[in-house]
Amino acid sequence: MNGLELLIFTVGGTVIGVDRQQVYGIITKEQAEEMEMDVIPLHRIIPFGRKSIHYRCPRALLLKNDPSRALLIESPDDIIQAGIDSIRCLPPALAACNPVKAIWGVAMTGERAAVLVDLDKLDITAGSQNRHIGFEQKISTKNTGAIL
């Protein structure tokens, strides 16, 4: 394991990195809604404290491990290769009191630090209100936008 290919996006001023291998694709929020997908804003699953979160250019992140739901995020900034040397574990103090177990580390990307989120460990059901059929079935007949 030499590192990860990270999809980088920003929510509420926090730079977030997710493993691109866990992402099926990215479509617009409207496309996801047209497909009657359950689109869950990221901040409904991961609390951002007292910050008020707005998505100026919302995108729906399609998850490989959960075809029925999409995660609403800000439009991605970048895809980067993060070597294992640039990835750090969460400091013990933070790991002990952060209940979001999907947050597993920090990647140093130049001057910035990206908080790493394991999409497979994200408790999406916590922010979900509905359950619909899988996106793979819908995507076959829809304009899917950017598929990674």
Binding site: V11, G12, G13, T14, V15, I16, H43, I46, P47, F48, G49, R50, K51, L90, P91, A93, L94, C97, N98, P99, V100, I103, V106, M108, R112, A113, V115
Partner: peptide, 15 residues
């Protein structure tokens, strides 16, 4: 750098 999910007394991490 703010880490989502952190309690209020942890404003973030530093490099």
């Amino acid at each position: 750098y703010y880490v989502p999910g952190s309690p209020d007394f942890i404003p973030g991490v530093i490099n």
